[in-house]
Design a protein around this nucleic acid. Structure first.
Lengths: 191, 191
DNA sequence: ATTAACGGAATGAACGTTCATTCTTTTACT
DNA sequence: AGTAAAAGAATGAACGTTCATTCCGTTAAT
């Protein structure tokens, strides 16, 4: 008989509710209820509501890397590495829509903006794979002559927009359309 | 002595505060204070907080069209019409960062999602210029073979991402970079 | 083996604060 | 004087957080 993973239950409930109802519409009491714990219990695992919101983000972000890096060949040509990462990322978002929606909501909130600012100014931390890839591409002159930030926008802007529309039910993406979408992202950044 | 435009003052204060503090951090009392009116007065002009939020959005959206349509030549070749609208739009967001940030926040909130769903399913309403343009482009086979929704994502995804990073201070866009960014958007959608 | 004591995890009612909205009073205009 | 607009104090609902108490598994003693 496994001991119940209360922290995990709380995170799961928070993901469901924050995603479905927004940060507004998900009071702690409701999260506790959905997680099957008492309201006070949450505070044994998370210092405050804000901390819960941020921890949930980190938790979700960490799961992405193993997924997109599976089968990633450091030595492959630049274009196919780009396509690999882009496709995997889009697939991941489609496969885990709750994750995608939560991260989007987070990014477009004061939490996310502060978070992003820290990341830009502080040490690079996680985005290493992408940063490395793009820096190489810029050096080899396969990419357009833009600052790195803009290249990220050109590549991920459309990707995220497409993921959003899929997740909201405005389009239904099949395998071929995923591939062609990422190729269009490539067209945007390639020289 | 001009009679004070209270509705306008309220909208302006709401724009400032919602943008700077988020929907969370801007209580009605503060908006009233910044607008220089009593708290109750707001309710003479807007039925509720939610209505105020939505009206402000509509108000901002309406101002965009005159700006981007100035000098728009219906008869020009497709590519240059695309570049015209894209450039103007990006310029507008850069010139009115509060407007941009508010609209972004709105879009990524329950309000905006409901709003967008209505727009997609109901009558087209405003987006006519863009929709018309893209439908023509699709018909003439200058655009990639994607559903309209995806084409929108490919074109506006990067544009909005770049605007966001500029507005947050992560890049400084000059005229030439604006133009080149829109050309990159074009690369993403062109066949 | 049984029971008693202990410690930390969990609980959820209660608290204090915040905030949208309402209501009564005051002001300004005709 | 009479009416419409404005003000801002009052209201009550909602919410995050706290804390005194309960529960339960483990250890220690008999």
């Amino acid at each position: 008989m496994m001991k119940p993973d209360r922290r995990g239950e709380i995170l799961k409930a928070a993901l469901d509710l924050f995603t479905e109802q927004g940060f507004h519409g998900a009071p702690m009491a409701l999260i506790a209820m959905q997680a099957g714990v008492g309201a006070g219990t949450i505070y044994r695992y998370f210092e405050s509501r804000d901390v819960l919101i941020r921890e949930l983000y980190k938790d979700l972000e960490e799961r992405i890397y193993p997924y997109i890096l599976a089968g990633y060949a450091e030595t492959a040509p630049f274009r196919s590495r780009f396509l690999h990462l882009g496709t995997k990322l889009l697939r991941y978002f489609i496969e885990y829509p709750l994750c995608f929606r939560y991260m989007e909501q987070f990014h477009n909130s004061p939490y996310g903006i502060a978070f992003r600012r820290d990341k830009m100014l502080g040490k690079e931390g996680h985005c290493d794979v992408f940063r490395e890839l793009f820096e190489q591409g810029a050096a080899q002159q396969v990419l357009k002559d833009f600052p790195l930030v803009i290249l990220f926008c050109l590549a991920f802007g459309p990707l995220l927009a497409v993921a959003r529309d899929h997740v909201l039910g405005f389009v239904q993406l099949d395998d071929s359309m995923i591939d062609r979408t990422i190729e269009a992202c490539w067209d945007a950044v390639k020289r």
